[in-house]
């Protein structure tokens, strides 16, 4: 076969393949985006699974449409910067803030998503955190009660932790339930929540949860992620604590 024919074949093949792939990518993109959106919102709702269950709306039982509708009706999204100020930028929504990208920026320029969910007339703040597990990234959402101190629930996910060990941070609901009711402040001091290998210390039961056997490094990653992740929201918490006291309670 002559070189000319070979080149012709390769060019024709490239064009056909390019059209095919471009067509599928464009055609399927809206569905994929919607799925990703629902997936992320489910993760967020998982953090407030307890209040939702109490309100008669178990997060797992919600259909995709109900998840989107709940978000439209009961969740306020905002984006804050590292100084705790609201970022008012056209078209910037909390759901579009990618913490993986934010973490690559210098600390002062980072933006963080904040969700304020209203369940049964109580407000819950949901903060997103991200860190490293054993093999790859781990991330999650932490829901705090109105006092911005007590944890109402958490949800975690991971890119590649070992199933049955590190992946339990996502799969093991009993383990995750331990976080409910823990305090991230000890008096005035920010302490976050510590995942203790071998079991939480009785004396510090308010700020510690049991580790996961066989997943020490992932659990340490969770400790670090919670500490650094929530610390980034500290300026915002201080700000909203003062404003909400003056606005809502007096």
């Amino acid at each position: 076969m002559s070189t000319q024919k070979v080149i012709l074949f390769v060019v024709a093949m490239t064009v056909v393949v390019a059209l095919l792939l471009a067509g599928s990518a464009v055609g399927l993109a809206p569905i994929a985006e919607k799925n990703a959106d629902i997936f992320n919102k489910r993760q967020l709702l998982l953090a407030i699974a307890n209040p939702l269950e109490a309100a008669g709306q178990p997060a797992a039982a919600l259909t995709d449409e109900e998840v989107l509708a709940f978000f439209d009706e009961n969740v306020e999204q905002s984006v804050v910067n590292s100084q705790g100020e609201l970022v008012n930028q056209e078209g910037l929504l909390a759901v579009n803030v990618d913490l993986a990208k934010e973490r690559k920026k210098p600390e002062a320029e980072r933006n963080y998503p904040v969700y304020k969910a209203n369940v049964d007339n109580s407000n819950y703040y949901i903060f997103s955190v991200r860190g490293n597990g054993l093999w790859d990234a781990i991330w999650g959402n932490v829901a705090l009660e109105q006092d911005l101190n007590t944890i109402a629930g958490v949800s975690f996910d991971h890119a590649g932790e070992t199933p049955g060990l590190g992946a339990e941070i996502k799969d093991n609901a009993t383990w995750r339930a331990q976080f409910v009711g823990k305090k991230i402040y000890e008096g005035e001091k920010y302490v976050s929540v510590y995942v203790r290998k071998g079991g939480a210390l009785q004396s510090r039961a308010e700020h510690e949860v049991d580790g996961l056997s066989g997943a020490t490094i992932t659990a340490d990653g969770v400790t670090k992620m919670m500490y650094e992740g929530l610390q980034a929201y500290e300026p915002f918490m201080e700000e909203s604590a003062t404003t909400s006291t003056s606005m809502n309670f007096k």
Partner: peptide
């Protein structure tokens, strides 16, 4: 063409795999 058959095979496989990937992303995220 015999000279580029492995490349052609690879392109065919890669195209199909990309299609599967896109489809899975849309169907079961």
């Amino acid at each position: 063409p015999k000279a580029v058959r492995l490349i052609v095979q690879l392109v065919i496989i890669a195209t199909l795999v990309t299609l599967v990937n896109e489809a899975l992303k849309a169907l079961n995220y």
